[in-house]
Write a protein that binds this DNA or RNA. Structure first.
Lengths: 339, 339
DNA sequence: ATGAAAGCGCTAACAC
DNA sequence: GTGTTAGCGCTTTCAT
């Protein structure tokens, strides 16, 4: 790899001058600058970040620690948002996966510290409270999709789910729906409680409620080893004369199973029953027919916001505080007029 | 950040000795080693990779260039495989996204060269021929899911699709199916031609064929701006007295639309019609009911193989050659006995 | 078994 | 506007 001295030799200037050109220092005559630039292009010189790190103590690297997020299909939009914002900054992205394992988490931090990353994005798949040793206090860090244990005013990026849910419920009500059903997420998920709470609260505002018989489980088993049961529970629920006119689902996969159950019973969506998902996992929501009405998790924006926060934090331009990003209701054909 | 000299001072040895301990050099007495190790732990010392890079010319970083792969839900398994293999090596992973844009591609290479990456994984979303300037000849590179333009014996990782397709067809035939339909992928995809070719070839071996009337488009429009039309084309096809008993689909999303079409017509899968997908995009294939029989793209293994290739290549232990990974047929409930 | 000196590529702080 | 000196953290080479 060609170094700054070789460029200097070719351009017949000192290495310091080459450095000035590279960093757009004004104090270089246009003529020398052109000569140096020509040498840079001719030799294909790219400054060595390792050397830069030693001099300036800046690596130009942001570390990304995920539990499983970067290796599951659900939240690629977070990664996408992060990369899109990274690309506009001058940082590079170093990604590490912990699979939720504490030992690997510790190893990940060491790895990132070895590279002297300027900051870290700590992203979790599910909303949850972080345990104390998950985040290294010595490195500027923004946590994404999770809460710090100490409840401190840590920089964080979180989705705000309840407004989106409220919007969805209101849309259903104004389409004439009065009989609501709900298919629950895994109970150990923070989001599960929050979504059901938001659903019930909004229903109450409309003078409606969720009957127990129409509130069933969509998933069973412990986190990460859970299996979907929505197909069976929904099939039983819908195979009655008295059934809900609209079915809210904890997420879009559950909605797909609910759709399968309706299909099996010969019920048409949305003519016989309306369906609303959560997450806006588009491979399902935009591909199935009818397309799935659902509340979109703002993953892309969360990723972007996370990068902006960490960049601001690293440059001391930002005071650390949690930031909430709104969820939007995506009204699509699976939610229609009540029968 | 604490440096090797501070550790040396605390342990009362020279910095060189600390270095020896860090790198497990034998020539250190157990006693000094223990003292040094204690200092390292106490201070939380992690060697500075930037300094290491300068001395050894090894960054310990593998660059990952993707067009869109790392930001779409379809191929997270490649990333997963890569990360799982990276984790067992001593490399870190620096990820860059080009979105298929030549300018960003050039910028990506410069970024990786700045970090003096030891090797590069160049991964594409769809199988395609690379153009000449996509890969930098100056950096050891393994291309994944794509072919080099010059047809040279470049190190590459590719899926072998035809055997999996043949297996799927044979399974259908032995379940009594004689009337085959096919829903095509975007014609500009290399995989589209290959899959249809493999399907027809295997059918021919069984003395069967694909009637034109049962071979329809699943997708329309140019790549990256295409829309699914499988719901409509399949609905028309199936809304006839004479219809196929099994429908092969170019990918799993198309299969989901085919399923939607069948549901709309009141046809049951698999009793009235069997369905076979391609890709094994599990969020669809394992969640819908019946679960979707499909040919699995071996993305995880491809990712792992890619890392092993690049590691071998960097250490000159491997001669560069393309490597093919087999696709496996996943027999699930959507493919059943012919009616 | 341990240490001292030199140098990797680069820039901050001064010269000039 | 341009060049010189020194040193960032580390390992290689050579001494001891």
């Amino acid at each position: 790899m060609v170094s700054i001295t070789e460029v200097a030799a070719v351009a017949k200037v000192s290495d310091r001058t080459v450095s000035r050109v590279v960093h757009n220092d004004k104090r270089v005559t246009p003529k020398t600058r052109a000569r140096v630039q020509a040498a840079i292009n001719a030799l294909g010189y790219v400054p060595n970040r390792g050397a830069l790190l030693m001099r300036t103590n800046k690596s130009g690297i942001i570390g990304l620690i995920t539990d499983v997020v970067s290796t599951t299909p659900f939240s690629t939009d977070i990664i996408h948002g992060i990369q899109s914002a990274i690309e506009e900054s001058d940082y590079s992205l170093l990604t590490v996966n912990t699979a939720g394992d504490p030992e690997r988490t510790a190893k990940s931090w060491r790895e990132l510290k070895g590279h002297r990353v300027d900051g870290v994005l700590y992203v979790t798949m599910f909303q949850r409270k972080l345990s104390a040793d998950e985040v290294d206090p010595g490195v500027p860090t923004v946590i994404v999709n999770c809460h710090s244990e100490d409840g401190a005013n840590r920089p964080a990026i979180l989705p705000e789910e309840s407004a989106g849910m409220a919007e969805a419920v209101s849309a259903a009500v104004s389409l004439g729906h009065r009989k609501f059903g709900y298919v629950r997420l895994n109970a150990s998920l923070l989001a599960a409680a929050e979504r059901e709470r938001a659903l019930r609260a909004t229903l109450a505002e409309h003078g409606l409620s969720l009957p127990d018989k129409w509130c069933v489980s969509g998933v069973e088993g412990p986190l990460f080893e859970d299996t979907f049961v929505a197909y069976d529970t929904v099939k039983s629920m819908l195979d009655q004369a008295d059934r809900p006119s609209v079915l809210f689902c904890g997420n879009d996969e559950i909605a797909l199973q609910a759709f399968s159950a309706a299909a099996r019973l010969g019920l048409r969506v949305p003519e016989d029953i309306s369906l609303v998902g959560f997450d806006d996992f588009r491979v399902v929501s935009e591909v199935m027919r009818p397309r799935l009405a659902t509340v979109a998790l703002p993953y892309f924006q969360m990723g972007q916001a996370a990068v902006r926060q960490i960049a601001g934090l690293v440059q001391d331009q930002l005071e650390p505080a949690p930031q909430f990003i709104a969820c939007q209701f995506m009204h699509r054909e699976s939610l229609s007029r009540a029968p």
